[in-house]
Every structure is written in C-alpha cells, then in structure tokens.
Amino acid sequence: MIAISHLNKSFGKNHILKDISAQISPGAITAIAGPNGSGKTTLMKCLLGLLRYDSGEVFISGHNISLSSAYKKETGYVPQQSALPANLSIEDMVSMLMELRDATYSRYDDLVALLHLEGQIQKKSSSLSGGTRQKAGLLLGMLFHPSVLILDEPLSYLDPATSVVVKEELLRMKENGCTVLLSSHNMHEIEEIAGQLIYILEGRIHFSGSPVQLMEHHGTATLESALSHVLKNHYESNRQNLKIYRA
C-alpha cells in the first residue's frame, strides 16, 4: 500500500509536483502516465527515496518514508536503465544484494528460468544486450518477494515473448497482494495490465481511476485516444484561461 498526501517538490523555482495526493492499493497494478516533463519520474523518485520532497507525506507499507528506511526492505525497484556495473555479472549482483539483506532465500532460480537468463548470469554486464540487462533489472527488482514493486518503463527493451511473460508475472504478483506501480509511455501496455491509472499533467494529478472509466468518459475505444482528448481539452482550457487573463 502506498499513501501519498499533499506531496510537493520543487527544483529551484520550478514547482514540479504540486500537491499530489493518491492511494495506491495492494493487489492492484497502478500505472503512472503523463507527457514528458509532467513530473512522473520525480514522483517515482520521491517514492524511492532518491529525491527529498519539500512537503507532504508518503507512507509505504505503513512506514513514513521520510522518517524510516524500513520500507526499502519490502520494496523492489526495476529501473529503465541497467544498474549493473560493467565488470560484474548478474550472479555477482544477486550475491551482493543477498549479502546486504542477509537473505537466505530468494526467487533467483525461479526468475532466471522465467526470464530465460540461464546462459547470461555469469557474463560481464558490459557484454549483455539491452534487453538482457533489462531482464536483469527485473530479476533484481522481484528477487526478494517485494510487497511493493516500482517499475520504470519495465518493458521498453524487451522482445514480445519476454514482454508477455513479464506482464503475466506482474499480474501473478498482483494476485498475491503485491502493490505494483509502473510508469509507462505505452498506453496499450497500461490498458492491458493496469487496473488503475494516475495521469499527471504539469505536476498535478489530472486523472486517477481505472483506464476503462477514462475511455468510457471520453467515448473512445482506446486509452491512447482518451488521453489525447484529455491533453487537447487541457491545452484548450489553458488557452482560454490565458485569453481571460490577458483581457
């Protein structure tokens, strides 16, 4: 469970996140979407403890993340870019994480098989392809049965077959009560697996609900069309406001 309350974050004079409040329920896949520069990466970084927010509160699995880092034990993170150092293998990285967490049990074997990484785990990271590195990122994020899984564009470099496997795995984790939060630009992907959508525009939550709800509201058959309506309306209303302001 992730609870965000009145979250604000600025970089200098740029107010990036403006009073963000949201509840991300366990047992659901929630997608964060929005145009470039809307603030979705900033929001995810705040949740991961990479950015210190100016005001507001974030609770992950009941822990206030600005007061305790205990939530990190229960949180898995899958970055878009590989986090593997050039001369370490996937196996090295797994060993390090296991040692750091004093873990005796993980999903290592299961995930290696699931992601078809058998021949790759001992190779130096610099010799792995972009797709394999993304699979390694997925493996590291899912390794310790996280109760919260945060993924940044998790399927962007994957081949269609692996993409299907990963989507199925995310749905299975959701069924087991995991809170899955992912950011994506691929609306088809969101439509397929996400039960909830948080759409951010200019640092504010513009829509929060199910993708189906949004499509019905705009009378469109796809999420992509619904969101293009949202954007069009938003920019139109901005133009109107500017005209009123100038007048």
Binding site: A70, P79, A86
Partner: peptide, 16 residues
C-alpha cells in the same frame, strides 16, 4: 559518473 545508475539503484536498497 559511470556508476551513477548503480549508485541510484543501491540507494533504493535497504542500505545507508
């Protein structure tokens, strides 16, 4: 700088 993604990932782990 070449380790920036690794550093970022490590900060998300239960590590000081």
């Amino acid at each position: 700088y070449n380790s920036s993604d690794f550093i970022l990932f490590m900060i998300t782990q239960p590590v000081e």
